[in-house]
């Protein structure tokens, strides 16, 4: 009640109208969406579970790899004093706005056994890295990495330097300062970045299509499978799962972000 009144008092007439319109729009959209999704039945779980578990098998390792490398490079970008950091950050951020087909194209160039680099890689690893789950994991890692890196950098830069200097003054080596002082202090921002990175890995479509090959039962993740099920009854089940995952992810990002101020 008081919050509502405070809200009303904080806005003038025009802003109030906009806010009311948005709220109505939002309410309608949500109600419509939920009703629509509930129409789907869990009876189709048997069909949906195959792409679902492929998605998890791709997105979870991808998030772990992107998280570790992203946080490490975010730390280097935040604390390092070397020229070209901004260029490096821009290069690492490319997958945020680069079309997934471009990523797919370059991954094929580097991973296909037919190319020079890919041939060497295939021999070293012992098996091909395209048209199987490994290829999907690589594509999802690339999609998730920039979000982990960028939020790690801003989170590390937000850590009070005095706390790090104090830790150094009592004799902790740099790597312990990073792991035991900076990392815990930056954890919220990093967690938000990992969450959104995980969501991007779960939803990757274009590069996964090109590198994974869209093989049913092997590399067909949910983002790919949804295309084939537009006209089938398991569509709603799949949409329900995907939309719920997205809502959970973005709510998590919102909660982690909100409490930092």
């Amino acid at each position: 009640m008081t919050r509502g009144r405070a809200f009303a008092q904080s806005l003038d007439g025009n802003q109030k109208a906009v806010a009311v319109a948005l709220t109505v729009l939002f309410g309608f959209g949500l109600g419509f969406g939920v009703a629509h999704l509930m129409a789907g039945s869990i009876a189709y779980w048997g069909v949906v579970s195959v792409p679902f578990f492929i998605t998890l098998r791709v997105a979870l390792p991808a998030t772990v790899i992107a998280g570790v490398t992203g946080v490490a490079s975010g730390y280097v970008l935040a604390k390092g004093r070397f020229p070209g950091r901004d260029l490096l950050e821009s290069l690492g951020s490319l997958p945020i706005i680069l079309p997934p087909t471009v990523i797919g194209f370059y991954l094929l160039e580097v991973l296909s056994p037919g190319t020079r680099v890919g041939g060497v890689l295939t021999r070293v690893v012992g098996h091909a890295l395209v048209y199987n789950v490994d290829g999907c994991i690589i594509a999802a890692t690339v999609a998730a990495f920039p979000f982990c890196m960028r939020s790690a950098r801003t989170a590390f830069e937000g850590v009070d330097v005095a706390l790090e200097q104090a830790a150094r003054a009592i004799g902790l080596p740099n790597w312990r300062v990073a792991l035991q002082v900076s990392l815990p202090l930056a954890r919220r921002g990093i967690a938000a970045g990992l969450t959104i990175g995980c969501a991007r890995a779960l939803g990757e479509y274009g590069a996964t299509l090109m590198v994974g090959g869209d093989i049913n039962g092997k590399t067909r993740t949910m983002s790919l499978a949804i295309l084939d099920s537009f006209t089938t009854p398991e569509r709603n089940t799949m949409l329900l799962i995907l939309v719920l995952m997205a809502i959970v992810a973005m709510t998590g990002v919102g909660l982690l972000g909100r409490s930092r101020s």
Binding site: A199, Y205, L239, L242, A246
Partner: peptide
């Protein structure tokens, strides 16, 4: 949500 949803959805 469009940030987290697959573009296909």
């Amino acid at each position: 949500l469009p940030m987290a949803l697959p573009p296909t959805v």
